[in-house]
Design a protein around this nucleic acid. Structure first.
Length: 503
RNA sequence: GAGCCGUUAGCUCAGCAGGUAGAGCAUCUGCCUUUUAAGCAGAGGGUCGCCGGUUCGAUCCCGGCACGGCUCACCA
């Protein structure tokens, strides 16, 4: 557990924990020259994986005949002393390998130095390979060098580190001792690499747009504020890159994406971290139907790549990513869940009546569109376990989306739900500058009325649309939630290396 | 921001009508040259999250605070 109030503890505090003291003393016994205790002159010749690959199919006799000497470096993860011999395990980024050290092989002095090593120390080992009686591939140490002393004891070897607070605050320890955590973050890296390659192959250009913006637009969320001293200018950390990416469509890049951090000054939960990673992509001459296809393609390929299967575990259930995915209109979903006809959801009083009938707490000041979305979130969203595109959002909750050609009160937009969580949001883009100006003004009015998640009028964005933005569609995919899905993680903190905690 | 739950040794966890605490691993000492959750024998280690209250006496009961978890709210 992290000390809660360490301000009164100093480095020379005498009652240092016994185990730390023992390790510090061992460090001191190496002598006053710190270069010998923290050396950087050992170069491994092989990783554990490379050694296993090299020796994998050799029988014990062939292994004995192999005269190669291997140099291996890593962290000591187990120590089994036996009088005049000792076994320990070295772990590097690729795995663990057992080391066997004998007094009669190393000499008295060198053997004593091996015996003084602790679990957690970083060490280098040189020697030849053999197999033990129990057929364990082992390196017989001809030389063992302490490279870096570990002053603190590692968590228990069998149960590991369980305390979630320590796991998040001291992620380095979590990573050290919990291999499944390392695996999650390796998967995260592979997923992000795969997404980039997927888009690159489809002709998308990866770009970087401002994270510090003079005006926070592109999503309905409260921004973080910061200040530039030299310009004496307040800036907002971006809540979304959307308005900048669409300016690039105007400029002639007709397929762009950005995969990077957004910042929203909102609450924390198992699905929300104040800084999170979002993919946004924009494609000219495409509509939201194209985004649905692209999303299915991407998720299917990712599931095959990462899980090797389209049926993946998700919080104790199974999710099938086999396309095509279900499509459900927002209104139909609410009607079905509420047990009424869609025609009974047409007006604001209709919706209030339904909410009342179901005993739902809703804000009566909401307009029809927001209320419909609210009902959907309460009634339908948590039940959308299998992949579902939710379609046809009300205009008033979608100030940047293109109107539906047949029903101008709705927009051509979908959100994707899997495992009860929103994974993506996409729409055909609004490119009529006059309509956009009016929608911005409605947002600004809502803002003046107290909605601090509503955006302001972005005059330059409207001007950009006046230069003509090609018809286009765009999509945002929550990368953290995508990683949660593909690693079956219950909390966003399990897929973010250093999630925000109170300090 | 609200409700519920949690915080005991380095780690994982027990415990208690209210009588200031235990185990395993880890650590230390001794023995042990093919073990692998090594083994055997012994030892040390705790402001029971923090502050206050009740009480002869509080790890335990009560109040407050801190941090964390879950749920809700917020997050189109």
């Amino acid at each position: 557990m992290t000390p809660r109030n360490p301000s009164h503890i100093t480095m020379d505090e005498v009652n240092e924990h016994e185990q730390i003291k023992v390790r510090r003393d061992k460090l001191a016994q190496l002598g006053p020259d710190r270069r010998l205790a923290f050396r950087n002159d050992f170069r491994p010749s092989h990783t554990v994986q490379a050694i296993r690959d090299r020796s994998g199919d050799l029988d014990p006799q062939e292994l004995e005949a192999l005269s190669d000497e291997f140099a291996l470096a890593g962290r000591i993860r187990a120590f089994r002393p036996h009088g005049k011999a000792a076994f320990f395990e070295i772990e590097d980024a690729t795995g663990r390998l057992q080391v066997y050290a004998r007094k009669d092989g190393l000499g008295d002095e060198a053997y004593e130095r091996v015996r003084s090593l602790d679990v957690g120390d970083i060490a280098g080992v040189r020697g030849r390979l053999f197999r033990t009686r129990t057929d364990e591939l082992t390196i017989q140490a001809g030389e063992v060098t302490l490279l870096t002393k570990c002053i603190r004891p590692l968590p228990e070897k069998w149960h590991g580190l369980k305390d979630v607070e320590t796991r998040y605050r001291q992620r380095y320890v979590d990573l050290m001792v919990n291999p499944e955590v390392r695996e999650v973050f390796r998967s995260r890296s592979r997923i992000i690499g795969f997404v980039r390659e997927f888009l690159r192959q489809r002709g998308f250009l990866e770009v970087e747009t401002p994270m510090m913006q003079p005006m926070a637009g592109g999503a309905a969320a409260r921004p973080f504020v910061t200040h530039h001293n030299a310009l004496d200018l307040d800036l907002y950390l971006r809540v979304a890159p959307e308005l900048f990416l669409k300016r690039l469509l105007v400029g002639g890049f007709d397929r762009v994406f950005e995969l990077n951090r957004n910042f929203r000054n909102e609450g924390l939960s198992t699905r929300h971290n104040p800084e999170f990673t979002m993919l946004e992509l924009y494609q000219a001459y495409a509509d939201y139907e194209d985004m649905m296809s692209l999303t299915e393609d991407l998720f299917v390929m990712l599931a095959k790549e990462i899980r090797g299967n389209l049926r993946i575990p998700c919080g104790g259930r199974e999710v099938s990513l086999e396309p095509p995915w279900e499509r459900l209109s927002l209104t139909a979903g609410v009607a079905r869940a509420a047990g009424v006809e869609e025609s009974a959801l047409e007006t604001l009083p209709d919706l209030l009546r339904v909410a009342d009938k179901l005993g739902l707490q809703v804000d009566p000041r909401l307009g029809r569109g927001k209320l419909l979305v609210e009902l959907f979130e309460q009634l339908v969203e948590p039940r959308l376990i299998q992949p579902t595109f939710v379609l046809d959002y009300p205009l008033e909750v979608s100030p940047l989306a293109r109107r539906n050609d047949d029903d101008p009160q709705f927009v051509d937009r979908f959100e994707l739900f899997i495992g009860g969580r929103e994974l993506a949001n996409a729409f055909s883009e609004l490119n009529d500058p006059e309509d956009q100006q009016r929608r911005f003004e409605e947002q600004a009015a809502a803002r003046r009325a107290g909605d601090d998640t509503a955006c302001e009028v972005d005059e330059d964005y409207v001007r950009a649309l006046e230069y003509a933005m090609p018809p286009a569609a765009g999509e945002g995919i929550g990368i953290d939630r995508l990683v949660m899905l593909l690693t079956d993680s219950a909390s966003i903190r399990d897929v973010i290396l250093f999630p925000l905690l109170r300090s």
